[in-house]
Design a protein around this nucleic acid. Sequence first.
DNA 1: GATTTGACAGACTGACCGGTCTGTTCGTAT
DNA 2: ATACGAACAGACCGGTCAGTCTGTCAAATC
Lengths: 203, 203
Amino acid sequence: MATQRDLQAEDTRKKIMHAASEEIYRVGFQSASVGEILRKLGISKGCFYHHFPTKQELGYAVLEENFAQFQAEIWQPVFNDPNPLRAVIKMLGNAGNIIDKERVKLGCPINNLAQEMSPIDEGFRTRVEKIYQLWRTRLTESLLRAQKDGHMRRNVQAGEIAVLIMTVMQGAVGIAKNAQNHAMFADCTRGLTRYLKSLQLNN
Amino acid sequence: MATQRDLQAEDTRKKIMHAASEEIYRVGFQSASVGEILRKLGISKGCFYHHFPTKQELGYAVLEENFAQFQAEIWQPVFNDPNPLRAVIKMLGNAGNIIDKERVKLGCPINNLAQEMSPIDEGFRTRVEKIYQLWRTRLTESLLRAQKDGHMRRNVQAGEIAVLIMTVMQGAVGIAKNAQNHAMFADCTRGLTRYLKSLQLNN
DNA sequence: GATTTGACAGACTGACCGGTCTGTTCGTAT
DNA sequence: ATACGAACAGACCGGTCAGTCTGTCAAATC
């Protein structure tokens, strides 16, 4: 059973994760300072290294947390929709709302970690690769379902469209981040949205 | 006139730039160590800080160099082609050849700098923004020309297509980098290529 | 109630960082 | 011939980093 101490410890761990997630999101993993994170929380080094063996492991944990959040917020609504193609179009349109000012400035936390760490840390790379693979597969399945259910034209490759959608999203996030312009994301996805609409049936 | 000393100095500066460009490309700007770069070259600190006031200025110089190289290698052939749409399609197809193994692993140097530094250094951000803006404008002009010359369908917005192309390229480079898979770039651009081909006329 | 142990505290280490400062050397201008 | 200054050398500085180690304390266990 969970003792009082266990609960306290778990709470501390969550605090560290949350603060670390923010800091890493702001300045990148390599530039994020463990000491700085702890200073903000008023937590000691000893405490931190009791919960995490290395900074690297902290990074992996943060990545997993970001994945879970992103998945629930962005992709699950698409995967679960009876008309996934329409849901994607809606999601792209909504992104302007979901993506607040801070997120425009800082981009996608998962993508940031991927771009920064993939070439120099295999652990990050494989974890992100699995995430992308999962989303690619699920999105392809969803689009195949849309075709089967008569919501989407059948003379296009669902897998190819799924990859296109993910590619455009990744590109759009990156460009909007650099431009630090809220409208830029919409600009970058407009062409894709128009194309996806041309694939819709019975709508 | 250029004295012997001027030539020597310029040579040294170029050596530093080249080594720095490589190191920054490999590990990112923040993690690139000035000392490490100099150690590889067998050049002293004093020498370096004689040529560059700060590490930051070195970064800006490297960015400009990368820009010039990329521009000449990738975009000029497109902008100058009598049939720019066809040239873009060709460029996307050729990218698999231009982008060698190392580049797949490390991505696009400009994009890397943008993603890493834009949120925390306005100097990097504005420089990259100018570069993207230039390419976007030039590409739009090129596509408008393609439409005027009857190489491209006129019922689409050239500007929208230009942004789509740049977005997909950025996304594709990022995804291929993470996957560290040479074929992934082609996978990510296949959907776009097919779409662009559907816009071709008189070909 | 004594003992154990998990949760935490914080001083400390050695490596490394960007940048400075004081030379030294030698081509160049006078 | 000499004086000058650009090009370079490298020791050095204050600060930061991830990670370690020893110690404390209170909750859990017996």
